[in-house]
Design a protein around this nucleic acid. Structure first.
Lengths: 397, 397
DNA sequence: CTTAATTTGTCTAGTGGATGAACAAAGTTT
DNA sequence: AAACTTTGTTCATCCACTAGACAAATTAAG
């Protein structure tokens, strides 16, 4: 049975209602008349759609606004408390969960730090975090509209986790598990995709339609927003650029190849280069970032040089990315972004080596939401998903 | 003045008409009833839209078809001769022009080979080719629906040529020039984008929605089709992956950086490596490809080894591309594709080194249209552009 | 050979949503 | 106080899609 999408007046209404809702969200507060102008819809049409939205609890009136020489407008507000969204950032040694309203504002958060555990324990922690947030949600008409979980690994389009090396997960199913338990839509996504979406919605990426978000932690992952939409690839595995070869004859990577970018430009890279700069390792795992930042803060020459070197490697990859995508904005996110001060000059220097027309309108920035971009991005996925679908599901109201 | 796209019955009709037309194009010949089923539109709606299309000369009836136990259907055909399209591939030392019908079938072509000349001479040759094809076009209701020109260089979204190093062009305007002269819509595009589109429409890419087309000639350029649409980047300069660094400490590239991919994996790469394999250069420019292929055909060990090495470099870049995009299909096009026999094994070997889930559903292929992908792609751009717009412009009919 | 069933394509009445204009209500400016 | 503005609702109209009836054309069955 082949089903092509056809266009009829139902779709028209759906789309226009969505347009009106998003216009109100964006300009909140705004009058009906102003909304009609912004959307270039007819006043009457807007009126009728707004009344629908009010009945559905998505919009409310907040009394008269300022007159500009005529009848005072009735201001409309997006009902940010029509429901709540939950976003989870499943880190390698932490879990961050946020409960947000429908504008993505954080109402509550829960952070757990733990050392590496088995899959079962990790899941148990995750459920605890979700339970905690659900138990404390405010009273809203739609309650929890969805749960999103960001994973540091490859997730396919169906939400299956194919491989999360740092969690030691392979072929893990958690979407249905969570969906069954909580009875709400669940979205599983790659952590870099989530971070990219978070920055686009609530961070430094709000004005760009072509964003490459580079999540640099232990490894490197990329989230890409192209033409205003997240690109996932054929199966959902786009952005695995940590394993881009930048050095033909470089060191061996656990992935089996030589000279992968993340060996040079991630926390792994920092760790590997410490010996060369005669900086004694602090611990025997690879998490020296805070330690190195502390030293850099005290103007330790070796640490500064090290950051400069790694910054250069990051810049090299960024240059490759710019040549590939011709983006509007490149955002450096995740843990490495806290070293902005010491790596940024080296990155920018490399970027100067790209062809002149690539630099036109290109912005390099660092994460605006810092540690929260992933969790907030996942919450945003669920919100957007809800806004696209509530109009069907709630016909029973 | 902010204009958001709103949805009304005009848009609905437009979209449905487009859907019907494309359905007829795809299943040609097909009856009205069958079209209604395929599009899931109402029979009456299809009838009315088809009659519009017939009046507009886009569709015609070709008499009764086979009955399946009832009244015999009236078969509908797409009127491939409603107009013609012209596609030009502006090569470094040749110009290929094709005149096609609206299905992209080549009705006539004109090939000119010439040594490098100034911009003025090149343009003069281009005009000659176009004039030649226009003079010989068949009689059609819409005549020439557009002209597309593929350029081996960076073209911005407005059709300005920013830089075409191998043509020695910088900041050249030809779109308006052609448009003024011929009075039809003109599209200027990067040659790799054109090739990608050509392969998607008429070549080996017809079934894929996520295609990376790698145009390997003197240099390397990429055309990408993501989610079924060509991706151009923020300004139109995506796909400049020839200058992706794959060797940190590699040789200097004219672009100012070290170890660019195209130094290793293009015709430049072949040329550079010839000395190491003790193959005497044949000419003093960098076009030894035909010469090397001739030697490989005779099983010349050195030539085979050389192709194997360069194939490995190509494969390395393809691996990077696969990790970045998670594509459905990778197509090797342009001149280097004629060495398929000798480079393919090395490329596939490198591809085996990618993570297992990246390989799922991934197809590596070589250009199906060979030397014609760019020109046909450009013709296809003009056709698609016409099909999207004729419904507005021809209201005066 | 007649009759029933099937398929195609047109036509008509009805539905739903957008539009434009009229209008009342509620302001501001002169 | 009068004239002008702005807002938001209402109503008649338009337009595209839909469902269902129907005639024409054909095959299948008795």
């Amino acid at each position: 049975m082949k089903k092509t999408k056809t266009w009829n007046q139902h779709v028209v209404k759906q789309e226009n209602k969505d347009l009106v809702l998003h216009t109100i969200m964006r300009y909140d507060p705004i009058s009906r008349a102003e909304t009609a102008i912004k959307t270039s819809l007819n006043k009457g049409t807007v009126s009728s759609l707004v009344n629908d939205l009010i009945e559905e609890n998505m919009v409310y009136e907040s009394g008269p606004g300022k007159s500009s020489g005529g009848r005072r407008p009735v201001m409309l507000n997006f009902n940010r408390m029509a429901g709540c969204s939950i976003g989870i950032d499943l880190g390698v040694n932490y879990i961050l969960g946020v409960l947000t309203d429908l504008t993505g504002e954080i109402l509550m958060e829960k952070y757990i730090k733990y050392e590496y555990e088995s899959y079962e324990i990790t899941m148990q922690h995750t459920l605890e975090v979700i339970d905690y947030l659900i138990a404390r949600q405010p009273d809203t008409p739609y309650s929890i509209v969805g749960i999103g979980v960001g994973i540091p690994g490859a997730v396919d389009l169906k939400g299956q986790v194919m491989l999360a090396p740092n969690l030691n997960w392979e072929n893990v199913e958690i979407k249905d598990k969570l969906q069954d338990r909580y009875g709400v839509p669940v979205i599983i996504e790659n952590e870099a995709n989530a971070g990219c979406y978070g920055e686009k919605k609530y961070g430094v990426g709000s004005k760009s339609n072509h964003i490459l978000y580079i999540s640099i932690g232990i490894g490197i992952g990329i989230g890409m927003m192209l033409n205003g939409e997240l690109y996932r690839g054929n199966n959902g595995f786009s952005g695995e650029m940590g394993h881009m070869t930048i050095d033909l004859n470089g060191n061996l990577c656990p992935c089996g190849n030589r000279g992968c970018w993340e060996l040079y430009a991630s926390e792994k890279g920092l760790h590997a280069a410490m010996a060369a700069y005669e900086i004694p390792p602090q611990s025997n795992d690879q998490r020296d970032l805070e330690y190195l930042i502390a030293r850099a803060r005290q103007n330790d020459e070796r640490a500064l040089a090290l950051f400069n070197t790694v910054g250069g490697y990051i810049g090299l990859g960024v240059k490759n990315i710019v040549n590939t995508f011709n983006p509007e904005q490149v955002i450096i996110g995740n843990r490495m972004s806290s070293a902005q001060e010491w790596i940024e000059p080296a990155i920018r220097e490399k970027l100067d080596g790209t062809l002149w027309f690539q630099k036109e309108g290109l912005h390099l920035e660092f994460s605006g939401l810092s540690t929260h971009s992933s969790a907030m991005g996942m919450a945003a996925f669920s919100i957007e998903n809800f806004l696209k679908s509530y109009q069907y599901s709630q016909t029973a109201l």
